[in-house]
Simulated assay, not measured.
Amino acid sequence: MRFSPPRLASAALVAALALLSSAPVTAAQPEGTPEEQITFGIRPATQDAPDNRARFTYGATPGAVVRDYVAVSNVSLAPLTLQVYASDAFNTSEGGLDLLPAGRPSTDVGAWTKPETTTVVVGARSVVIVPFTLTVPADATPGDHTGGIVASLVTEQTGANGSKVRVDQRVGARVYLRVAGELRPGLAVEGMAGDYRTNWNPLGRGSATVTYTVRNTGNVRLRGKQKVVVRTPWGSTVDAEVHADLPELLPGNAIQLTAAVPAVLPAGWLTAQVDLDPSVGPDDQKLEVPDVSVTSTFAAVPWAALALLLALVAFVLLWRYRRRGRSAPKPVRTSTSGAEKVPDVAVR
Score class of each variant (00 low, 15 high):
T117K: 04
G206C: 11
L177T: 05
A173P: 02
N216R: 07
V264M: 08
A15N: 14
A45L: 08
P302A: 02
E248L: 15
I38W: 06
E94A: 11
G235W: 01
R67A: 01
A240L: 00
E241D: 15
A208N: 08
A346Q: 14
A173M: 00
A180F: 13
S4R: 15
R320K: 15
S73D: 00
N253A: 10
Q29V: 14
A307N: 04
F56N: 07
D283T: 14
T295P: 11
V294D: 02
L100V: 05
R231I: 10
Y176L: 09
Q273R: 15
A89I: 07
V220M: 03
G218Y: 00
A328N: 06
V332K: 11
A314E: 11
V121C: 06
T258F: 00
Q273M: 05
G147Q: 01
K227Q: 15
G41H: 04
V294E: 06
T113G: 00
R205I: 02
V150D: 05
D88H: 06
P30M: 05
S10K: 14
L77W: 12
Q29C: 10
G181C: 13
P79N: 03
L312P: 10
T237C: 09
P343C: 10
Q29R: 13
T237K: 02
T213G: 02
F298W: 04
T33Y: 06
V14H: 11
P131M: 05
V167I: 12
T155H: 08
V342Q: 14
F3E: 00
D283C: 09
T146M: 13
V292C: 00
P331M: 11
T119K: 06
A78P: 03
V347F: 01
A138Y: 14
T118N: 13
G59Q: 14
V301K: 00
G162D: 06
N161A: 11
D344C: 09
F90C: 02
V238F: 03
A305D: 12
G206N: 07
N91F: 07
D344W: 11
D144L: 09
L77R: 06
F132Y: 09
A300F: 02
G235F: 04
G252C: 04
K164V: 13
